[in-house]
């Protein structure tokens, strides 16, 4: 049987909804990964010593094993522990924590690369450690690491496709629904790939703007 892309027309709505959920999922997981990444970086740099080892171990586990395996663990493991959270939340949690480990690494390096004089100047003005971190150190570290953090977020968008395996109805899942009714995987996966490509371009454009703004304040 030849290719027939016209079958996609009937599934515009399904695919658009899938794309919408992919975008929502990506943004939510990105926010979580940045917030948690900052906390992990701070815990490793300034946290109590007893905290550093388990945090480092967990981060190493998240970075050293496949995301797909982690998603299975969160999905089945939470159920095993009797914790009942919606599958969408499980997906966001898995993606967010996975990329938080990578972001933490980047942010930690960014903080480490700042001159000691910045912290000293802030402290010598009477700002507390927390205030110096929040108003002087972190803004600069995040500005300096905007490109690699943006790279992680682009990766997150693509990896969000994996949550389809735990049944979240995002873009891949939407394509699979169309396939199950039409038996035309090639057309639907090409369509899904095209949508990812466009989302990717949009995200790169947005990140480019953020980076240029960050660059302007140097």
């Amino acid at each position: 049987m030849g290719l027939d892309f016209t079958v996609l027309a009937d599934y515009r709505g399904v695919l658009a909804l899938g794309a919408w959920w992919t975008a929502v999922l990506t943004l939510a997981a990105a926010a979580l990964s940045l917030g948690a990444g900052i906390l992990v970086a701070l815990a490793l740099l300034h946290g109590p010593r007893w905290l550093a080892l388990p945090v480092r171990g967990l981060a190493g586990l998240f970075m050293g094993t496949p995301l797909l395996l982690q998603l299975f663990l969160i999905y089945f493991g939470l159920a095993q522990l009797g914790i009942d959270i919606p599958v969408l939340a499980a997906g966001i949690l898995g993606l967010g924590l996975h990329f938080a480990a990578y972001n933490a690494e980047v942010i930690r390096a960014g903080i480490g690369a700042l001159e000691a004089g910045q912290a000293e100047a802030a402290r010598s003005l009477g700002l507390s450690r927390m205030q110096a971190m929040r108003h002087v150190i972190l803004p600069q570290a995040l500005r300096d690491t905007a490109p690699p953090l943006g790279g992680n977020m682009i990766a997150l968008l693509k990896e969000s496709s994996l949550v389809s395996v735990i049944g979240i109805t995002e873009l891949v899942h939407a394509a699979q629904r169309g396939i199950s009714e039409t038996y035309r995987p090639f057309e639907f996966y090409i369509a899904a790939a095209a949508v990812y490509y466009v989302l990717n371009l949009l995200m790169e454009a947005a990140l480019g703007r953020i980076e240029r703004r960050a660059e302007a304040s140097r």
Partner: peptide, 19 residues
């Protein structure tokens, strides 16, 4: 923190906050 609020310090490298 209380102490340093009463002491002004100026550094060789300025250490202004670039952001």
């Amino acid at each position: 923190n209380a102490l340093r609020r009463q002491i002004g310090m100026v550094f060789q490298q300025f250490n202004l906050f670039p952001h």
